[in-house]
Design a protein around this nucleic acid. Structure first.
Ligand SMILES: [Zn+2]
Ligand SMILES: [Zn+2]
Ligand SMILES: [Zn+2]
Ligand SMILES: [Zn+2]
Lengths: 133, 133
DNA sequence: ATAAACCTTGGAGTTAGGTCTAAGGTCAAA
DNA sequence: TTTGACCTTAGACCTAACTCCAAGGTTTAT
C-alpha cells in the first residue's frame, strides 16, 4: 500500500494532482487507513499510469474519463469505438498542426521581408505590414 | 467618430472585447462624448486593426502590447528587435508543431495497431498499450 | 411619449488543469 | 518528547482571453 506522497513521487506528479484527479472522478484509492489516509494498491498505481500515458498521448481529462469507462468494461465496447476515439484525436491534432503551420509560415514570411539590421525600425516592413496590410 | 458598438461590428469583435483591451492597456478611444460614451477615430480603428492582425498572427496580448510600444516609437528600436520577436514567435510555434506532430504520430501508431472491428474490445491493442506499455 | 437599442460601470463567471493555503491531525526518529 | 515530515479538508487562486450580468443612463425611431 502506498500513501499519496509515495505514489505521487513514484509517478512524478504531485499529491495535489492525485487529489484533483480524485475530486474529478478519474481515480480513487482502494481504501483509507483508519485515520483517513489514502491507501493505494499496485492496481491503483497501474490505473494512474494508464491515466498518465493517455495524458501524454494528448487526451484531455474528460477524454481520459471516457477511456477509463471503456477500459473498466471492455466487453461493452467494440474496437471500432476505441479506434474511433484515437483517430478523432489524431485528426484534431492534425487540424491544429495545419493551423499552426500556416501561422508559422506567415510569421516566417513576415520575418524574411525585414532586413533585421541594427538601424531604426522606422522603415520596418514587419510593422508596416501589421499596420496596413 | 465611431461608438463602441460600431467599431466592434466593423472589426468583427464584441464591444466587451474592446473594453477588455482598454482595461488591459492595449487600446483606448481618443475621446469620450459629454455623456461618457467612448468615441473612436479612424486612427483608433487602424490601431485596433493592427492588434487584430497581430493576434491573427498568433501573438498573445502581452506580446501585442510590446509590438504596440515599438510601433508607437519606431525610432527607438532597431529592425533587429522586431525581427527577433517575430522569429522567436515562429520558433516557438515550430516547437509546438514538432511536439504535436510527435503526438499525432504516436496516436496514429496506436490506431494502426487496432483492428477497428465491431467485436468486443476485450483484446484491444490500444487499451492494452495504455494499460501496460 | 415611450420602447428599442444603445451606452456606462464594476465585478463575477468561464475553461482546463492544476497549485497553494490554512488549520489541523498523525507518525517516525532522535 | 519534541521536531519534522507527512497527511486531511475546504476552498481560494492561477493563466488567457474573454463573456456575461446587474443596474442604471442615453439616443433614436415611431
Ligand atoms: Zn530594416
Ligand atoms: Zn524591419
Ligand atoms: Zn480489435
Ligand atoms: Zn482495438
Amino acid at each position: 500500500m502506498y500513501r499519496i506522497g509515495e505514489l505521487a513521487t513514484a509517478c512524478e506528479v504531485t499529491a495535489d494532482t492525485l487529489r484533483f484527479y480524485e475530486k474529478n472522478g478519474l481515480f480513487s484509492p482502494s481504501s483509507r487507513s483508519d485515520k483517513g489516509y489514502r491507501l493505494y494498491t499496485e492496481e491503483d498505481a497501474r490505473h494512474l499510469k494508464f491515466i498518465l500515458r493517455a495524458k501524454a498521448m494528448g487526451f484531455s481529462l474528460t477524454e481520459i474519463r471516457e477511456l477509463l469507462n471503456i477500459e473498466a468494461s471492455r466487453s461493452d465496447w467494440a474496437c471500432a469505438d476505441v479506434k474511433g476515439m484515437v483517430e478523432a484525436k489524431a485528426a484534431e491534432l492534425q487540424r491544429k498542426i495545419d493551423e499552426m503551420t500556416r501561422l508559422r509560415d506567415s510569421l516566417q514570411e513576415l520575418a524574411d521581408a525585414c532586413c533585421g539590421g541594427p538601424e531604426s525600425a522606422i522603415h520596418c516592413s514587419i510593422l508596416d505590414t501589421l499596420e496596413t496590410k
